[in-house]
Design a protein around this nucleic acid. Structure first.
Length: 276
DNA sequence: GTTGAGCGG
């Protein structure tokens, strides 16, 4: 039985030639030469340049192009980007149950449809009010459309200047001079989180007032949270201090970290946002 | 070694 020469693949300029030998059903030998024009794209310029590198080692005298005896040129591999629900729907999703989870959002922001709660939306202060205003202009905001004005006695004097009769929080009543009942600042939505530091290794009899005295010199403090056990009130030995200015917080870190306080050495760092 | 409490959908 005669052996066939191995297939050969050469590249000259932008012409690629593949030569292979075959035997057909009648035992006749065939030589097949195929030539291709290689399309050079901008993106693969670097690849084209590498093709001109001088060969070395055992391949030093090989002709240009890959040696099919020891090199396999694979098919093109196309990358598939799954970036949206639509893409998922377009393909068959069923085969992998994980695919379902990928496209499914746990939460969807009402403002920007992003992957976060509405309250955490980065546009909550800009886009949010705009959308709300727009909705009110279109008359979609409140109320029962079957109810017409004045067909029912008002139970109490409506707030001055309010025609809609909808709830107005105390902080916005009377020309907004009055503040809300609760002056307790809310951790949620705190905008000063980038000026919050965490103090650890506090002795357990440290109080908020102690912290206030300790950090007061670095700048005005917007909030102090001393972590305590909810039931026993026992301090957990760490606290969060929020400053109004981040520079003050930075100086507080530099100034107080390593500071001996009671019988312990304080550790002060930037606080991470507690939410996941 | 130790990162809060709360709101939803």
């Amino acid at each position: 039985m005669s052996t066939l020469p191995p297939p050969k693949e050469t590249v000259k300029g932008n012409i690629k030639t593949i030569t292979e030998y075959k035997i057909d059903e009648d035992g006749k030998k065939f030589k097949i030469i195929r030539t291709f024009k290689i399309e050079t794209r901008k993106a693969s310029k670097a690849v084209a340049r590498r093709k001109n590198w001088k060969k070395f080692g055992n391949s030093e005298y090989d002709p240009p192009g890959p040696n099919v005896a020891d090199t396999t040129v694979s098919d093109d591999v196309f990358m598939v980007f799954i970036s949206s629900k639509e893409d998922l729907n377009a393909q068959d999703v069923e085969e992998d149950p994980m695919n379902k989870l990928k496209g499914q959002k746990i939460v969807s922001c009402r403002i920007c449809k992003g992957d976060h709660w509405t309250t955490r939306c980065p546009y909550k202060d800009t886009l949010g009010p705009m959308q709300k205003e727009l909705a009110e202009q279109l008359g979609l905001s409140t109320g029962d459309p079957t109810k017409t004005a004045g067909d029912e006695p008002e139970p109490a004097a409506p707030a001055a200047g309010s025609k809609t009769g909808k709830y107005v929080p105390p902080s916005l009543r009377d020309g907004s001079t009055r503040r809300g009942e609760s002056m307790q600042p809310n951790r949620r939505g705190a905008s000063d989180d980038n000026a919050t530091i965490r103090v650890t290794n506090l002795s357990e009899d440290t109080r908020e007032t102690d912290l206030q005295e300790l950090f007061r010199p670095f700048g005005s403090i917007s909030r102090i949270y001393l972590a305590k056990d909810k039931n026993t009130g026992q301090s957990k030995g760490f606290a969060f201090i929020s400053f109004h200015r981040r520079e003050d917080a930075a100086r507080a870190i530099a100034g107080v970290s390593g500071f001996g306080y009671d019988h312990l050495i304080l550790n002060v760092e930037w606080a991470k946002p507690s939410n996941n």
